[in-house]
């Protein structure tokens, strides 16, 4: 079992700039009735106004529950959560005025056209009639939806629905926009479109908090990333700082054709230029059982001081000495995925 580092980074839970906090979370806990463990287990962080904040973690890490509590749909078991300075537990009604939510799955009003979805949403939030028409026209244009404004959302694709929901969320000019897995399940073109629109929002006043299990998304969009697993915050920093916190400049991932004991790993670690070796284990996924770690074919990640390509031959030789053949090699510079593996000993998916 790889070692889980509870707090490998000395991370600051609050942003460094003093722009004022759009969101502040202190020791937030959620335990669902009859659940054996906390879904969110003492999470603290702060998000500065105008910041793009990413919650990165695998499914079930507690990201959606955290967002649920910040948006008043999930009642916290303990701790405190402030949005725009308003306590979401004490004053959920006022908190709702500060936030907008783009959920994972479409919750568009199927009885209304796209334009009416936007207009009525603004009406719920008290935007004056003329203003909501103007804003709807503007956002429909911005999100490339003008030609379908009169259609009902029934037959919209995932990407179109996502665009409508983001446009709808912006109708009441929220201080904080929450996006739960904004591009999961979208095709590449739709994902790029959503990313572009979100990048544009960075330059506006609105604070973005997005959950994702996609490290590219987090690295591309977020100013700072919080890595969550099992309801806890494992690390929080800018993507660059998180990656920079890992030793080495390059990574080399090796897969062998059979399982191995610790001696191989030790031998690999002894190679010159190898800073650290991590064993990667497969996760059970979609109901399929993963074999126990000891029975899995060897898969290791080497963190290196120099060029990864130069280490392939020596590493292959070490494997051969132990009766293993090299099956797969991946060279790379560290990514957020490596940070996650470093923190948990598991891959993100």
């Amino acid at each position: 079992m790889p070692k889980v580092h509870p707090r490998p980074y000395d991370f600051e839970v609050l942003p460094r700039n003093d722009a004022g906090h759009a969101v502040e979370v202190v020791d937030l806990v959620k335990r669902y009735p009859k659940a054996p463990v906390n879904a969110v287990d003492g999470v603290s962080f702060g998000v500065a106004a105008g910041e793009v904040f990413g919650l990165l973690g695998p499914n079930g890490a507690g990201k959606t529950t955290t967002v649920g509590m910040l948006t008043t749909r999930v009642r916290p078991t303990g701790g405190r959560a402030l949005v725009g300075g308003i306590d979401v537990m004490r004053d959920p009604v006022r908190a709702r005025r500060q936030v907008a939510v783009v959920p994972q799955r479409s919750n568009l009003d199927r009885s209304l056209s796209i334009r009416d979805n936007l207009v009525f949403h603004a009406a719920y939030h008290g935007v004056p009639a003329r203003e909501r028409e103007r804003r709807a026209a503007e956002l429909l244009d911005q999100f490339g939806l003008l030609d379908r404004a009169g259609d009902k959302p029934d037959f919209f694709s995932g990407g179109q629905g996502q665009r409508v929901m983001i446009a709808r969320a912006l109708m009441h000019a929220p201080q904080v926009l929450f996006l739960d897995e904004p591009t999961t399940g979208l095709d590449p073109a739709a994902r790029l479109f959503v990313w572009d629109r979100l990048r544009e929002l960075r330059d506006s006043e609105v604070t973005l908090i997005l959950t994702t299990h996609d490290m590219d998304e987090a690295a591309f969009l977020a100013d700072r990333v919080a890595i969550m697993d099992h309801g806890r915050l494992l690390a929080l920093d800018t993507p660059a700082a998180l990656i920079g916190g890992l030793e080495g400049e390059g990574t080399l991932e090796l897969a062998a054709d059979g399982s191995a004991d610790g001696a191989v790993v030790d031998a690999l670690a002894a190679l010159t230029g190898v800073e650290r070796v991590e064993t990667v284990h497969l996760q059970a996924e979609n109901g399929a059982e993963a074999p126990p770690p000891a029975a899995q074919p060897l898969r290791v990640r080497l963190y290196l001081t120099g060029d990864a390509a130069l280490h392939v031959a020596p590493a292959a030789a070490v494997l051969a000495d132990h009766g293993l053949a090299l099956q797969d090699v991946k060279l790379g510079t560290p990514t957020l995925e490596d940070v996650f593996i470093h923190l948990t000993g598991r891959t993100l998916r």
Binding site: P92, V93, R96, V101, S106, N107, D109, R110, Y124, H125
Partner: peptide
């Protein structure tokens, strides 16, 4: 349909 979510997030009890 989850349609009700948008109303539950409107600024009212």
């Amino acid at each position: 349909t989850k349609e009700i979510e948008d109303r539950l997030l409107a600024p009212m009890p």
